[in-house]
Amino acid sequence: MEPPDIESFFVAELTKAQAKMRIYLTKLLANSPSTDDVLQECNKVLWVKRSNWDPNTIFLKWAYRVCYFQVKAYFRNQSREKLVFNDELLDIMGKEEPDLNSPKDREVAMNQCLQKLDSHDRSLLMERYQGEISVEELAKREGIPPNTLSQKLLRLRHQLLICIQANLKTT
């Protein structure tokens, strides 16, 4: 076993990388419900292979490569997965460089953007993302067809994304 300080450093790096790794996997897996399972597998592989990582290199780049091969392995073993990108696109997206900015900047920008939304719209978004409630259930409660709500949520998220990008550019 490595000296505790190197191990702690590895855990800190792995911890820090979790959100980015999940986004990376979500992208390659087309937001498959199995994303968390693949992430957990990636964590195990990274831990087992921790001695292969050179602490002088960017951890996230190494982690992305491991994640990429785990995704390929997952698709090989899961023929029932409905939305599977072809190898060419997987390769293109898999090689894209990680964004090394802090997720906190985005969170701050998003909080500012959320406050600009109408309170009902904001509440809808929050419930959808934080309440573990499905679009169908939410639509039923709102008294509108699920498709109408889906479209509304789609527009709101796009609006939010544009606002976040604008905010990030100005900070």
Binding site: T26, N31, R106
Partner: peptide
């Protein structure tokens, strides 16, 4: 696509 996923992730963790 990347931006959308970043936004999704931030939204899901915003609470």
């Amino acid at each position: 696509y990347q931006q959308c996923l970043e936004t999704e992730s931030t939204l899901a963790n915003r609470h």
